[in-house]
Structure formats: structure tokens, C-alpha cells
Amino acid sequence: MATFESMDRRMPKIEACLKANGLESLDACNEMLLAKGIDCDKIVRGVQPICFDNAVWAYTLGTAIAVKRGLTDAAACASAIGEGLEAFTIPGSVAEQRNVGLGHGNLGARLLSEDTTCFAFLAGHESFAAAEGAIGIARTANKVRKTPLRVILNGLGKDAAYIISRINGFTYVQTEYDIPTQTLTVVKEIPFSKGERAAVRCYGANDVMEGVAIMKKEDVQCSITGNSTNPVRFQHLVAGTYKKWANENGKPYFSVASGGGTGRTLHPDNVAAGPASYGLTDSLGRVHGDAQFAGSSSVPAHVEMMGLIGMGNNPMVGATVACAVAAAQANA
């Protein structure tokens, strides 16, 4: 039987969503998906093992919507999953006011679209949350894409990038940036595995200028920022600077700010400000973001506090893509 965090505040919207889509209950959704060979619990916890139960049930609802509609296009499935995530947002919360559930679905749809060729996790340092999201995407997205999606991690610090690459089996790309000539040089590449994980390229930058140069080199069309470590030293600055360059040079670039809301603002208003929060990192996200999520890129409890579900924003990207691909394949 479905039980999860803040269930009493979430159920009215969930029940309305179930009814609108001709679904009986969350338990019935789960049974339908299992009969189709889709185990949302395994998929979601496989991306971020420390996620809350409500994350599993939110993806169960979203994936059931996609399957019930008979959708065979993975991008369309991702958008449908966003409707399920949105139904889990708590009324009056930061997440509801920003339509973060729908935003995650739309981001997943972008990554499954052939128009997006490179996606970047912009981290303050190379983080495990970014790695979890990258693994989730690398494992599943290319099963339904004609052209493989390139996934990179771009963070502050070469040692951190090397460690994350080695632990997760990514390919570490060591670069040097010459400031006077604005030239980025690849010194060496070290793949720490073979297959899907090695396809994820992990960069460590010494500063914002090198971070922007990495974005240009990889021709990034879409990125998501982390919002915990070094948000005012790296990731928001890289996204904003790269966005300006992309606009000036006719390059498509969709920037997602993963954090914001109370608790990550570096400003006195982070206490009880709720949806009205305009703290420093929250404001930086609003400046460059085409979409802004709510809560930590990594910490489930903080995203839960924002009124969405207990799962980090970066891992959620991987979970959305993975569930969308599973739904599309089940309906094929």
C-alpha cells in the first residue's frame, strides 16, 4: 500500500490527477507498470538510493500516465511524467509556484529530443549528485535516441573531477586554459571504464573562464546548475556567461537553475521566506535560468522542504529520463 512523506497534504492533488487520467490508485498504477515490466522503485532508487518514498510514488504516477496514454515517444513520456511529479507538489509551496514538476518533465523531454546533442551538469565541484544524474542518463537515453546524447560534468577543481571520474568510471578530461590567448587545450583523457559510464566526460576547471571555454568546446545546448558548493564562484557564473555568448553567436542554449528557495540563498531572507525568497543564489538562478527548480541539486530533504519530492534535482534528471525510456519501450 502506498505510503509516503507528507501524504495528507499531497493526496488531494494526486487523487485529482489520477481521476483526470483514468487511473484508480497509486497501487493500481504500480501493478499496471509491474505487469509491463517497469519497476519504478528499482529505477528511481537505482539513480539515487537515498531518495524518499514519495519520489518513487511520484515517478510511479508519472510513468503510469505515460503508459496509460500509450505514448511511444520517449520525449512525450517525459512530459507526461512531469504531470505526475507536479501532482506531488504541496499546495502553496515553492515547487508548486514554480511548476517544478512540469519543469523536470520538460527538461527530460529536451534531453530525449534529437535537437539536444550535449547536456552538462554544472557543479560547484564535481559532485556525486551530478554523477548520479549522469549515470541515469547515460544508462538509458541513448536506447531511444538516433544520435547519442553527449553528457559532461563541468566543475571547479581538477582533483575533484579526477576523483569523481575514477570512482564512477567516467572519462576524466584534463585541460589547460591560457588566459592571454583564451585557448583551451586538452592535455589528456583517461577513461576509467568501458561502455556507458566511460561516455560521460568529466572536466575540472580552475576558474570561470576555463569553465566557459569547456562549454564552448563541447557545444553544450542544455545544462543544469548545482546550487550548494561554490554557486557564486563557478556554476551560475559559467551558465550566465555562456548564455550571453550563446545568444550573441546564435547558439541554442537552455539553462536550468536547479537550486533556490529557502535554505540555499546565502542571504538573511533564507529563514521563512518561502516562495518570496530572493536570496543571492536564488537571484543568480533567476538571472540566467530559462527554468528554475527548487531546492538542492543533491539533498533529498531540501527538495522535499521546497514542496516537491525527496530526491536531489540532479538525480531527478536521470530518473525522469530512465522512466520515460522505460515507458516508451513498454508501449512500443
Rank of each mutant, 00 (worst) to 15 (best):
His125Ala: 03
Gly84Thr: 02
Leu184Asn: 13
Asp269Pro: 02
Pro180Arg: 10
Asp282Thr: 13
Gly195His: 03
Gly263Arg: 04
Leu122Arg: 02
Val238Gly: 05
Gly169Tyr: 02
Thr116Asp: 04
Arg45Gly: 12
Ala87Arg: 13
Val321Glu: 01
Asn206Glu: 12
Pro315Glu: 03
Ala213Tyr: 05
Val238Tyr: 02
Lys36Val: 10
Arg286Cys: 04
Lys158Gln: 14
Val212Trp: 00
Pro191Gly: 15
Val271Met: 10
Ala272Ser: 10
Val67Tyr: 08
Gly250Asn: 13
Gln174Ser: 12
Leu284Ser: 04
Val186Met: 03
Asn21Leu: 11
Thr229Met: 13
Met316Trp: 03
Val303Phe: 04
Arg10Thr: 13
Ala301Met: 12
Gly260Ile: 06
Leu26Asn: 03
Asn331Ser: 05
Ala138Pro: 11
Pro231Arg: 07
Leu153Glu: 15
Lys251Ala: 14
Ala131His: 01
Asp219Val: 04
Val151Ala: 09
Gly169Phe: 03
Ile224Trp: 07
Cys40Ile: 00
Met1Tyr: 00
Ala123Thr: 14
Ile214His: 05
Gly92Glu: 01
Gly285Val: 10
Ile214Arg: 06
Arg139Thr: 14
Ala272Met: 13
Gly318Pro: 04
Lys68Ala: 01
Met7Ser: 15
Val56Ile: 15
Asp27Glu: 12
Ile164His: 06
Thr229Leu: 15
Val208His: 09
Glu24Lys: 14
Thr3Cys: 07
Thr281Ser: 07
Ala35Pro: 04
Cys202Leu: 08
Met1His: 11
Arg197Asp: 15
Thr241Gln: 09
Gly92Val: 02
Thr225Glu: 07
Thr171Leu: 06
Ala95Arg: 07
Ile50Asp: 14
Thr320Ala: 09
Thr117Cys: 11
Arg150Met: 10
His267Trp: 12
Thr185Trp: 02
Pro231Cys: 08
Gly101Phe: 13
Trp57Lys: 00
Asn247Leu: 11
Val44Asp: 11
Asn314Met: 15
